[in-house]
Nucleic acid binder design. Structure first.
Length: 575
RNA sequence: GCGCUCGUAGCUCAGCUGGAUAGAGCAGCGGACUUCUAAUCCGCCGGUCGCAGGUUCGAAUCCUGCCGGGCGCACCA
C-alpha cells in the first residue's frame, strides 16, 4: 500500500463488506474537514434501506482502525477520518527512510514507446515543438522512475520533397560555406524556399534532386547526411539547453522507414484494405468522414507514386509494436493531429499490429500569445524556440545570474506542465517567472529555503543530489525516524499530509499521463512548507521538536527536488 | 455542414474523475522583518461554474440540446 488513502481503505473495507455483504470501495479522499473522508455510506444507503447516517454510524462502530485513525460521522453520512500520531509517524518514517520517497516500482514493468519532440531537419525548432518535447520528457522521467522500460523516439522530419530544394541549395552555396553551422539552419531553409519559389530552373533541379535522393544516388546521399547530422547536432544543443534527456540515438527519422514503405502498401493490399481513389492508393478506415460526409482516406501512396506521411506513420507504428515490442505506444502531439492519428491507429488495428498493444494520443493545446492567438512573432512568423528560452533565461538572470538557467528554463517548462494539457495556454514570461502563484520559481525557492535550514542546522544535506532516477540511500531506519517524530501543530500536520501525497501523485501521472497533477502536489507541498516555515521555528526549537522538524525540512527538500526532477526541472541549492 | 475540443472571480488558471460552504496567483485595498532566505507571509474584496433541461441522496464534474471560441476535414507532416 503506497498511499494513505489505500491504507485507510483497507481498514474500512472490511466494515463495509460485513455490513453490505459485498466488497465495495470505501471511497476515501482528502478532505477539507478532516484529514480524509469516506463517502461510500451515502451511495450504499438506498440499497440497504437505511439512512446514510445509519450506514456511516454502523461502519464507524464496526471498523477496526487500530491506532491508524479516528472516525466520526458527519453531515448526511460522511465518515471523517483523522490520522493518529503513531500512524502518521510510521508513514512519514517509512517515506523518509525510502530513497524512492514511497513511490513503488510497478509490479509488471511494460515496454513503453514515447514519440515526442520530432523536429524537422534543416528547420529551426519553434514553439510548436516546445510542448511535445517538454511533456514527452516528463512522461519519460515519470514512467522510468516507476519502473517501466521506456523507449523515447524523436520522429525527425528528415525525408520528403522539401529535401530536393534544400540539397540543391547546399550544392549551390557549397558545403563549406559555413551556412550549415548551428543556428543558421533557419536562414538556410528560408533561402532554399525563396530560390525554389522564384527561380524555375532551381525548382526543376530541386525536383530532379528528389528523384536522385530517393534513388539512392551516393553523392546526393552524402549531402543529405551532411544536412541531417548537422541538424542532429543542433537538436541536441536545444535539448541540452532544455535539460531534455533525449540522446542522438533516440532520433529515428522518417527515412528510417523508407525500405519498409513498399511492404506496408503490399500488406495493406493483401488484407484487402487498399483502394484506388483519385489516382492515390488509400485506406478508408470505417467511421471517418470528410467535409461532405464522404469516406475519408488515409493516403498511403500519392497519385505521383510517392509515399505519403501516412505510410511512414503506419510503418512507424508497426515497428514500435512488432519490432520494439512496445506494450504501450504514446504519441505526444498537438490535438490538431488527433484525427490523423486515430486513423493510423484504426488501420494498424485492422492490420492486427496492435493486439495487446495500447496506443494513445497524448494531445495538447496550442501556445498562445498575449493577444490570445497562436503565438507568432511580430512579423507573423513562428517564434524560434531558442529565442523564447534565451529571453526567459535573460529575464531570470536579471534577478539572480547564478540561477538564471535553472530558473528561466524551469519557468517555461513548469508553466507548460502545470496546466491541463488539453487546453491552450498563454505564454507570459512575467507570470511564469513570478515568485508568487503556481510557478517553478516558487517551488525552487521553497526547496532552497528548506535546504538552507538543514545546512544551518549543521546536518548534512541529503536533498541536494537526490534528483536522480534510481534513488539514494535512506537516512535511517523507518522506526528510528518515526520514533523521533513529533507532529503536533496544524502546520506540521498539514505539511506531513501534503508530503505523504507524493507517491500517489507520481502514480497518477504514470497512469493518467497528466503531469499537472504532480505539479499541483508540489505546489501543495510548497505552500504547506511555507506556512510551517513561518510559524514553526526549527533551529531554535526545543530538543526533540527540532529534530522532528528537521525531518520535515529534509523530506520537503527531497520531495521538491525529486518532483522537479520528474518534471525535468532543476532545483538549485541556493537562490 | 460534419467531427474533436474548450467555456469556472476583471485577468491567468486549479478543482484529485459524482461529494459537504467551488480554491490559488495577478490586479485592488489593508497589515507583518531584532528571529532558520521578506525573492516571503497574513487578512479583505471579488463567482447565477456559458445557457436550458435531464440522470440521483448529491452535478462545475455524467447525458442531451442550444450559445460562444479554437482546431481538423484528400495527396504538407
Amino acid at each position: 500500500m503506497s498511499t494513505v488513502e489505500s491504507l485507510l481503505s483497507a481498514h474500512l473495507s472490511a466494515a463495509f463488506s460485513t455490513l453490505t455483504g459485498v466488497m465495495s470501495d470505501p471511497q476515501v479522499h482528502r478532505s477539507a474537514r478532516a484529514d480524509f473522508q469516506s463517502n461510500a455510506a451515502l451511495a450504499l444507503a438506498p440499497a440497504l434501506g437505511l439512512s446514510s447516517r445509519e450506514v456511516a454510524t454502523a461502519v464507524v462502530t464496526a471498523a477496526d482502525l487500530g491506532d491508524v485513525a479516528t472516525a466520526s460521522v458527519s453531515g448526511p453520512g460522511f465518515i471523517n477520518l483523522t490520522l493518529l500520531p503513531p500512524a502518521l509517524n510510521r508513514l512519514l518514517g517509512a517515506m523518509a527512510a525510502d530513497p524512492r520517497l514511497g513511490v513503488p516500482l510497478v509490479s509488471a514493468p511494460e515496454t513503453v514507446v514515447i514519440d515526442y519532440s520530432g523536429p524537422n531537419v534543416a528547420k529551426e525548432m519553434h514553439v510548436g515543438h516546445l510542448r511535445s518535447t517538454i511533456i514527452g520528457d516528463c512522461l519519460l522521467r515519470v514512467l522510468r522512475f516507476t519502473g517501466h522500460n521506456v523507449i523515447p523516439v524523436s520522429h525527425i522530419g528528415d525525408w520528403g520533397t522539401p529535401f530536393g530544394m534544400l540539397l540543391e541549395r547546399l550544392v549551390e552555396i557549397g558545403e563549406d560555406s559555413g551556412s550549415l553551422s548551428i543556428g543558421d539552419l533557419d536562414a538556410f531553409y528560408k533561402a532554399a524556399r525563396h530560390r525554389f519559389d522564384t527561380d524555375p530552373d532551381f525548382a526543376d533541379r530541386s525536383r530532379q534532386r528528389v528523384v536522385l535522393l530517393q534513388g539512392g544516388d551516393p553523392e546526393t546521399l552524402r549531402l543529405w547526411k551532411l544536412l541531417t547530422s548537422e541538424s542532429a547536432r543542433y537538436f541536441m544543443a536545444v535539448n541540452s539547453r532544455l535539460s531534455v534527456l533525449l540522446t542522438p540515438s533516440d532520433f529515428v527519422g522518417e527515412s528510417f522507414y523508407n525500405d519498409q514503405l513498399a511492404s506496408i502498401v503490399s500488406e495493406l493490399d493483401s488484407k484487402g484494405l487498399l483502394r484506388q481513389s483519385s489516382g492515390a492508393q488509400c485506406v478508408f478506415p470505417p467511421g471517418f468522414t470528410g467535409r461532405y460526409g464522404e469516406p475519408f482516406p488515409l493516403i498511403v501512396r500519392k497519385s505521383d507514386g510517392g509515399f505519403g506521411y501516412a505510410a511512414t506513420d503506419l510503418a512507424a507504428i508497426r515497428h514500435r509494436a512488432l519490432v520494439l515490442g512496445g506494450q504501450r505506444v504514446l504519441y505526444v502531439l498537438g490535438t490538431p493531429q488527433s484525427q490523423h492519428l486515430e486513423m493510423v491507429f484504426a488501420v494498424a488495428r485492422q492490420m492486427g499490429w496492435l493486439d495487446g498493444v495500447a496506443v494513445k494520443h497524448v494531445g495538447f493545446g496550442s501556445i498562445l500569445g498575449e493577444d490570445g492567438k497562436m503565438l507568432k512573432s511580430r512579423r507573423g512568423k513562428s517564434v524560434k524556440l531558442i529565442d523564447l528560452l534565451d529571453e526567459a533565461v535573460a529575464r531570470a538572470g536579471e534577478v539572480n545570474p547564478s540561477t538564471a538557467t535553472a530558473v528561466g528554463i524551469g519557468a517555461v517548462k513548469y508553466a507548460d506542465l502545470s496546466s491541463a494539457m488539453v487546453k491552450d495556454y498563454v505564454f507570459d514570461l512575467e507570470r511564469m517567472l513570478s515568485l508568487h502563484g503556481n510557478t517553478s520559481v516558487y517551488l525552487q525557492y521553497t526547496h532552497a529555503r528548506a535546504l538552507r535550514v538543514i545546512h544551518r542546522a549543521g546536518t548534512s544535506p541529503r536533498s541536494s543530489d537526490l534528483a536522480i532516477a534510481d534513488g539514494q540511500p535512506g537516512i535511517g531506519s523507518p522506526d528510528a525516524i518515526a520514533g523521533g517524530l513529533r507532529i503536533e501543530t496544524p502546520q506540521e500536520r498539514a505539511l506531513a499530509l501534503a508530503l505523504l501525497a507524493f507517491p500517489g501523485a507520481v502514480q497518477a501521472v504514470a497512469a493518467e499521463l497528466e503531469p499537472h497533477r504532480l505539479a499541483g502536489l508540489l505546489r501543495d507541498v510548497a505552500v504547506a512548507f511555507t506556512r510551517f516555515y513561518e510559524d514553526c521555528p526549527v533551529l531554535n526549537a526545543e530538543p526533540g521538536i527540532r529534530e522532528s522538524r528537521l525531518v520535515l525540512c529534509d523530506l520537503t527538500a527531497r520531495v521538491l527536488a525529486q518532483g522537479l526532477y520528474l518534471l525535468g526541472i532543476e532545483a538549485p541549492e541556493r537562490m
